[in-house]
């Protein structure tokens, strides 16, 4: 079985995003970029499935400007077999990304598609579900456990208030949550080997996808800072305020 994994190049999770002075967007100039943490977990899960013998090949796909090849190479260094970059000037909207990925899936015919549940830049949490809908495939989102049982994949999902386990027909789409696994580090020899693994570049035109505009970013602002409230003088006063004014207890 072939596994397709999608990866996104995003701001490093250790780096705080800063809004540009003109409020047009977030300033990413010379900012450390990295593999989206959820995508890294997706890559790890795919590699573990390959190491267990359940999968034979792991293909990684990324969409974006040329720089995203760095994240494909990182995934290859972690153990993926080959990479596909879909070259775009800017980061496409989720629906367009899903349409591009759908074409890759049609060509590659993977048995399982593993994706991060969301990217830590746009925080949309959409692309996996959209891709599943476009391909009419079942989905297991927010996975904390993935098991191949017979012809199906069993996904344990982190839902509000607990865990839910569902069984999906294959091919299926799984999106990862944080607790699914702890990704490995890439070793130096694997980083060097990754430079020689195959990586093909395609364009939306090659894939026959028309990139429509569905939303417009009007502005980006820094969140409003909290203002200091009042000082209370006693526990009685505090409890009274919380009950009657804030109404939170």
């Amino acid at each position: 079985m072939k596994i397709l994994v999608t990866v996104k190049r995003v701001i490093d999770y250790n780096v705080k995003a800063r809004v540009k002075a003109d409020n047009s967007d977030v300033d990413l100039a010379n900012t450390k970029m990295a593999l989206n943490p959820f995508c890294e977990i997706a890559v790890e899960e795919a590699i573990r499935l390959k190491e267990s013998g359940a999968a034979t090949e792991v293909v990684v796909v990324s969409i974006g400007p040329k720089a995203c090849q760095e994240q494909i190479r990182t995934s290859l260094a972690l153990g993926a077999d080959r990479g596909i970059q879909i070259e775009t000037d800017t980061m496409p909207e989720s629906l367009n990304a899903a349409k591009l990925l759908a074409k890759v899936v049609e060509a590659e015919q993977p048995g399982l598609i593993i994706m991060g549940k969301q990217a830590i830049d746009s925080d949309n949490n959409q692309t996996g579900q959209m891709l599943a809908a476009l391909l009419d495939m079942p989905q297991g989102t927010f996975a904390s456990k993935v098991e191949l049982i017979g012809e199906k994949v069993h996904v344990t999902r982190e839902v509000d208030g607990g865990l839910q386990t569902i069984a999906l027909n294959m091919p299926a789409i799984v999106t990862t949550d944080l607790r699914l696994n702890e990704p490995r580090y890439a070793s130096l020899p694997n980083i060097m080997k990754a430079k020689r693994k195959p990586l093909v570049v395609q364009t939306p035109v090659d894939l026959g996808v028309e990139m429509k505009t569905h939303t417009q970013l009007v502005k980006v602002e820094a969140p409003t800072e909290r203002q200091a409230g009042i000082k209370v003088n006693s526990i009685e006063e505090l409890i009274e305020k919380l009950q009657n004014e804030a109404k939170v207890i």
């Binding site: 702890e182 990704p183 490995r184 580090y185 070793s187 130096l188 020899p189």
Partner: peptide
């Protein structure tokens, strides 16, 4: 030699342990 990765605060190997390499 590069440092070992994935060693816990108390010196145990974690899940992500990777031995350092000699260059």
């Amino acid at each position: 030699a590069t440092g070992d990765m994935g060693i816990s605060e108390y010196g145990q190997q974690k899940d992500s342990y990777m031995q350092g390499m000699e260059l």
